[in-house]
Simulated assay, not measured.
Amino acid sequence: MKLTGIHHIAIICSNYKTSKDFYVNLLGFPIIREVYREERDSYKLDLALPGGTQLELFSFPDAPIRPSYPEAQGLRHLAFQTPDISGAVKELEGNGVQVEPIRTDEYTNKKFTFFSDPDGLPIELYES
C-alpha cells in the first residue's frame, strides 16, 4: 500500500453556523464548496488547508456529544503549524478564544499551545 498524505479531516459540528464562522473567518481557511444535502438535513462545507489537505465540516441533526475531557480513546487533537505562535495566540485571544499558555516541546524544542473549537475539539498550534 502506498499512502501519499492526508486528504481530509471531517468534523461534525453542534452549531454549523458557529463552526463555519470559526474555521473560515477566525482561522482563515478558504471555502472550496458548501452544499446542503436535503435528504440528510445536513450541510457539508469543504475548506482548503495549506498543502492540499481539506477540512470537512458537517451538520447532522441530533448528533451525540463526543467526550474530550478526560481524554478519551480516539482522535486526540488537530494540530496546525504556524511560523509565529505568539502572533497567532494574540489574534485568537483578541477574538475571544481562550488559549493555554505557550509551552516548549521537550524533545523538539518547538513552541506549542492548545485551544478549542466551538464544540470543544482540542486544536494545537505548533511553531514551525
Rank of each mutant, 00 (worst) to 15 (best):
L55W: 02
Q73E: 13
F115P: 00
N15P: 03
D21F: 09
H8I: 08
F80T: 01
K111E: 05
R40E: 15
G28N: 14
D84G: 08
T18Y: 01
G94A: 05
I85N: 04
V89R: 00
I85S: 05
E34H: 11
T82K: 06
G96V: 00
F115Y: 06
L47E: 00
R40H: 15
D21M: 05
N95I: 00
T108A: 14
Y69A: 08
I32G: 10
K2S: 15
K2F: 14
S86Q: 09
I31A: 05
S59P: 07
I102F: 08
H8S: 09
I102W: 05
L26T: 03
K111V: 03
V89Q: 01
L121H: 04
S68Y: 09
G96M: 03
A48H: 14
V35N: 12
K44F: 11
L78A: 02
P67H: 11
D62H: 14
Y69V: 02
I6R: 03
L125W: 04
L27W: 00
N25K: 11
Y69N: 12
C13P: 00
D119S: 04
E100V: 07
D62C: 09
V35I: 12
T82P: 06
G52N: 07
G87I: 03
I12G: 02
Y126T: 04
L3G: 12
D46E: 12
G28Q: 07
Y126N: 04
D41Q: 15
E124V: 02
T53E: 10
D62T: 08
S19Q: 04
T4D: 08
A48I: 10
K110M: 13
F58W: 14
S42V: 15
A79H: 09
F60T: 06
E127F: 10
P50W: 07
I12Y: 06
S42N: 15
D21C: 02
